[in-house]
Amino acid sequence: MKKKGIGFASAWQGSNLHFGHPDVSTVLIELREDQKFYVGVAAADLGQGIPETTALIVSRVLGNLPLDKIVMIDPDTGATPDGGATGASRQTSVTGNAAFNAANNMLDLLKSVSSELLNTSPSEVEFKSAAFFNQDGENVTLSDVIDEAKNIGTSLSVIGSFKAPSTEDLDEKGQGYGVNQFGYATYVAEVEVDTETGEVDVLKISTFVDAGRIIRKIGAEMQVEGGVTMALGHTLTEEFKQENGWPLTDSFTTYLIPSIYDVPPEISAHFVEEEVPFGQLGAKGLAELVLVPVAPAVINAIYDAVGVYVTSLPATPERVLQAIKDQTPDL
């Protein structure tokens, strides 16, 4: 017989470097002859989309500059400033703020150079639609500003840095300011359990995630869906088995990551945008947080369906059925 159940779980997870490690990123922006802004930061992209997010932040600061005017230089610690490790869910929060600062520095520089041409003070200059305007509506173009910079011998190159608030190592009682931001998430899992074979179908996962202000919605949604999928693997199919130190599950045939049929057709992402009170972006880390509530939500949903808790992962059909039989031996 198949039984349905619903389970909830909430989690919080700290991001950015913890326990006294300084967490810094630096971003370079250069306006070049081709009138494009070259943005460089050695922040590795594992597919999470930090180049797209960085470009978007720069674009917004520069008067919603079209994205084809922004070129992301390939990350390379030998050629671009260091963005720090892609880990601790930190790049959008730390490199994102550095990009924000760098773009503002660029804006100040461009206003200062263009103000000479527009016979006004830098604070009176407005930059929009890739042109600079004074209060009287007169304007100069990017190309005018590039020429003027050459005339006056100024480089149109800036950097911006950001350091997340300093943390400290915890004291012997485990107390202290060890982590500068936490993300929060609550998930709802809907499952169907076959009471006689122990098979679990995950029908739907709804997620409610507080990761601060969401900078690039599609990127955040992709992280949530991918994270949920990976965690569904941990919850239901992925098991690292070994014997005398030898891995038995050493291939894709034996270590089973979810296939398309293991993932519900609907994983919804809802964002609760509680901004973090430092930096200018309000963004918090998201990547790791989104995995955490999956296993408990699914296990709670299985409990709701069949009244038993599976207490070791993954919840394979065998473990689920065993738990059911242990509870009701004469079934």
Binding site: G47, M222, E225, G226, V228, T229, M230, F252, I257, S259, I260, Y261, V263, P265, E266, I267
Partner: peptide
């Protein structure tokens, strides 16, 4: 479409956006 890509594994996306 789902059947056609059921022999492809993806670790990152969660599949639905590919569909």
């Amino acid at each position: 479409v789902r059947e056609a890509i059921s022999g492809n594994l993806c670790r990152c996306t969660g599949y639905n956006r590919i569909v």
